[in-house]
Amino acid sequence: MPTFVLAFPVIDPVALQLGPLSIKWYGLAYVVGLLGGWWYARRLVSNDSLWGGRARPKAEELDDMLLFVTFGVVLGGRLGFVLFYDLERYLARPQDIFAIWQGGMSFHGGLIGAATGLWLFARRRGYPALSVFDLNAAVVPIGLFLGRIANFINAELWGRPAPDVSWAMVFPNAGPLPRHPSQLYEAFAEGLLLFVLLTIVVRLGGFKKPGLVAGVFGMGYGVARIVCEFFREPDPQLGFLFGRSVNALSGGITMGMLLSLPLFFAGLFLVLRSRRAVA
């Protein structure tokens, strides 16, 4: 056992209580993430030097784009969770599919839903789909960072047992063993680190090569998620899909890893494709 284990900072999952209405940190993370992304996207589209004359949405059109993204994220995230993570349960109780307040959202499903919404927005407004994808890819890590912090506050999606790690935590309802705070690992890798990487790509002219920023996002998120999955406890209803892990760095393939592989290769395809674009 480690000589020092961090105490889990127990925080009420309800951020604000207004009579019968309760606003939870997780829902607040979605709202602030979407609005923060909208604000940052307005700054990006208003900077002509970043685009090299390429067509992109106007700042005043981002309100409509936000609606497309919001519906895509919510619908795709929920359906993705149903299909990828707990299909047997929802086939038995299909009415629970609509019980979003009970939890259960999938990032990969939300990404597919958001991409579909953005494609419809781009087609409706006559903008190149890849440029719209690039714009949104640059802002997505904001929501990812906030979402993982909310996961930590909710004491959910905790890490695998880490008896020899001094910064491990004993999470409520996760048993007596100290565990990796994998939500914080993901907040750093999928949120902060990926945001910095994409910001650098944008400042180096990424928007001038359609598909480059979206491609780097796909590759970056894929790698970050797969690495973090080695420290995250697999979903109890699924467990390990292949192999079995006995510690943080051995065997065991999870659904999160499996879904991140096609995302990585799709990102690689976009990066290679963007090299043919003329700045």
Rank of each mutant, 00 (worst) to 15 (best):
V271M: 07
I100F: 09
G143R: 05
T3V: 14
M257I: 11
F264K: 01
G36C: 11
L157Q: 05
R160C: 06
L118Y: 05
L91C: 08
L130G: 09
N154S: 05
S131L: 10
R42N: 12
T254N: 04
P236I: 10
P128D: 09
I142N: 02
L6V: 15
E186K: 05
S245Y: 15
A92N: 12
R244D: 15
G239V: 14
F265L: 05
G52C: 11
A29C: 11
A279W: 10
P234E: 07
V74T: 08
A99Y: 14
G256P: 00
R89L: 07
F217V: 12
G113K: 01
G211Y: 00
G103I: 09
L241T: 10
E190T: 08
S274G: 04
T116L: 12
L28I: 13
A189T: 15
W25H: 11
N151L: 07
L62N: 01
Q183K: 02
M257F: 07
F133A: 07
Y30A: 03
A162G: 03
L66W: 02
P2C: 11
R179N: 07
F81K: 00
P2G: 10
Y90A: 00
L204V: 13
Q102T: 11
F71T: 12
G53Y: 09
A214P: 01
R273N: 07
V140D: 03
V201N: 00
F230Y: 12
E190F: 06
V31K: 09
G147P: 00
V132C: 10
A59K: 14
Y221W: 14
P210H: 06
P57G: 04
L241F: 12
R160P: 04
Q102E: 13
Y185A: 09
A41P: 02
F107G: 03
A224T: 08
T70I: 14
N136A: 14
F188D: 06
C228K: 00
D164C: 04
Y85Q: 00
N247D: 15
L261N: 09
F68M: 10
H108D: 06
E156S: 04
L259D: 00
A55L: 13
I100N: 01
S49Y: 12
L83V: 11
R125M: 12
I112H: 01
A138C: 13
F230A: 07
F264I: 10
A279T: 07
A187P: 00
P141A: 09
F242D: 11
Y90Q: 00
Y40V: 15
E190R: 03
G256N: 05
D12R: 15
G218D: 06
L6I: 15
I253K: 02
I142R: 01
S274V: 07
F231T: 12
P9K: 10
V82Q: 01
N154K: 04
N47A: 15
V10Q: 15
L241V: 15
S46K: 11
P94D: 08
L35M: 14
L238G: 09
A15I: 14
L67R: 11
L120N: 02
Y85F: 08
I149A: 07
E60P: 06
F84K: 04
G256S: 05
A122H: 03
L146G: 00
V10W: 10
Q102A: 09
N247C: 10
A92T: 13
I11D: 11
F98V: 15
M257K: 01
I226D: 08
